[in-house]
Lab assay of single mutants.
Amino acid sequence: TETREFDNEEEARKEAERLRRKGQDVQIRKKGNRWELRRT
């Protein structure tokens, strides 16, 4: 599992969408005042 953190939700969602188009399974969750993007 690979995780990346983003400062805002929009960036996290854009990156998640990009990875999903490549066929990756991605989850986003709020972590304090940041957003965590998890690739499984």
Rank of each mutant, 00 (worst) to 15 (best):
T40M: 13
K30G: 03
Q24M: 14
R34T: 03
K14P: 00
K22Y: 09
R29G: 05
T40H: 09
F6H: 01
R38M: 14
R39G: 15
R39L: 15
R21Q: 12
G32A: 01
R20E: 05
K30H: 03
R29W: 06
N33D: 14
E11H: 04
R4H: 10
R4P: 05
Q27N: 07
A12Q: 00
E10I: 09
E15P: 00
E36V: 07
T40Y: 09
V26W: 12
K14N: 10
A16W: 09
L19S: 04
L19K: 02
E5S: 12
R20V: 06
Q27L: 09
A16V: 06
E15Y: 07
R39T: 15
L19E: 04
R20F: 06
D25Y: 13
I28Q: 00
K22R: 11
A12I: 02
T1V: 12
I28W: 02
R38K: 12
E11N: 07
L19H: 04
N33Q: 04
R38I: 15
Q27F: 08
R21H: 08
N33H: 04
T1K: 10
T1G: 12
E5K: 06
K30W: 02
T3P: 11
E15N: 03
R34P: 00
I28L: 10
A16P: 00
E11M: 06
D25S: 12
Q27M: 10
E17R: 09
R34V: 06
E36K: 00
E17Y: 04
R29S: 12
T40N: 10
A12S: 01
R29F: 11
R38S: 14
E2I: 13
F6M: 02
E2L: 13
Q27W: 06
E10F: 11
E15T: 05
F6C: 04
E17F: 03
F6V: 01
E17K: 08
E17H: 08
E11T: 06
A16K: 04
K22M: 15
G32F: 00
E9F: 15
K14I: 11
D25A: 11
R13D: 05
T1Y: 15
N8L: 06
R4T: 11
T1Q: 11
R18N: 09
V26L: 03
W35K: 04
R4K: 11
A12N: 00
T3E: 07
W35R: 02
R13I: 13
K30P: 04
Q27V: 14
N8W: 03
R20T: 06
K31I: 14
E36M: 02
I28V: 13
L19F: 04
Q27H: 11
E15H: 07
K14E: 13
T40L: 13
K31L: 09
K22N: 13
K30M: 04
R20P: 01
K30C: 07
D7P: 06
E36S: 00
G23W: 02
R21D: 11
F6N: 00
K14T: 10
I28P: 02
E5L: 14
Q24I: 15
E36T: 01
R38W: 10
R38P: 01
E2T: 11
D7H: 06
Q24S: 07
G23P: 00
V26A: 04
E15S: 03
F6P: 01
E10H: 10
A12T: 03
V26M: 05
Q27R: 07
A16Y: 12
